[in-house]
Write a protein that binds this DNA or RNA. Structure first.
Lengths: 148, 148
DNA sequence: CTGTATCCATCAAGATACTG
DNA sequence: CAGTATCTTGATGGATACAG
């Protein structure tokens, strides 16, 4: 009844863009929400999208990557870059030289993922203050009611 | 040089949509990436967006919510809904009846957040298989190289 | 330079029981 | 019905040392 571009979040609509049977009653959850959760989990970890974003400007070697992403630890960079490679979001090219050189580059899939993530980043930039304000107001109110 | 809609991810462009001084050399990291990470963290937890999505159809009480979101535990629903309320993404209305009745509803801010998240969900639906395939290929290859 | 392994702190999240 | 508290587990992430 409402003009909802969002209802899709709780329907299999986005989970079944191709021909998909509506056999399983399609309640609210399992069909689409699992895919959403998985993707949010992939994208929502601490470093993945930042690495992808940094790699969009072009290939980088390990150390350059670590320098560009700033706070990331050696271990986390290895781990992040490995999982991105595994999921086909970046490629890893090793040059058997001495000293060893390895270059990482974003794939087309990786770049396509950046698009919606940027939308989200834009939302974040636009509404970050709203959230902070709401949070402050909420906490102030709790604090006040804690007194009485 | 590239046609990059993504470069923004590693620049303060999206972090400073209003009038913002370019005073701080704006390296790659701190200014924008923190906001991105925070938002991805907020959105990327296991349940938040599913709750927001379910609430778009209209207000729901606690138990209805728990039933609609499926796998969520009592504790996690309370916690999720509380943090969403704190950030101004949902409202909580308590009716002092017996037995008690509480209704949760998405705010305008909450609904606006759903928009980019849906974009992401669409991406997930479109490319989920690509990721799975890439993952399988990667694992097969590792398995093969483990043998030799 | 690149990558792996180990140890450790922290937190998210589930199960469960209990209160208003 | 709604919410809180406790306990416990597993995953995440950081620091560090070591290996190719």
């Amino acid at each position: 009844m409402t003009n909802d571009p969002i209802r899709v979040l709780s329907t299999p609509a986005i989970a079944a863009p191709e021909g998909h049977e509506g056999s399983e009653a399609c309640s609210v959850d399992n069909p689409a929400s699992r895919v959403i959760r998985e993707t949010l989990a992939r994208v929502g970890d601490k470093w993945s999208m930042l690495v992808i974003g940094v790699l969009h400007d072009g290939p980088l070697r390990f150390t350059e990557l670590q320098r560009k992403v700033d706070g990331i630890s050696h271990r986390m960079l290895t781990q992040t870059v490995r999982s991105l490679e595994r999921d086909g979001l970046v490629t890893r090219t090793s040059y058997p030289e001495i000293p060893p050189r390895v270059e990482y580059a974003a794939t087309a899939l990786g770049r396509s993922l950046s698009v919606p993530v940027i939308e989200l980043a834009r939302w974040a930039a636009a509404h970050h203050d709203d959230i902070l304000d709401a949070r402050e107001a909420f906490d102030d109110q709790r604090e006040a009611s804690a007194v009485r």
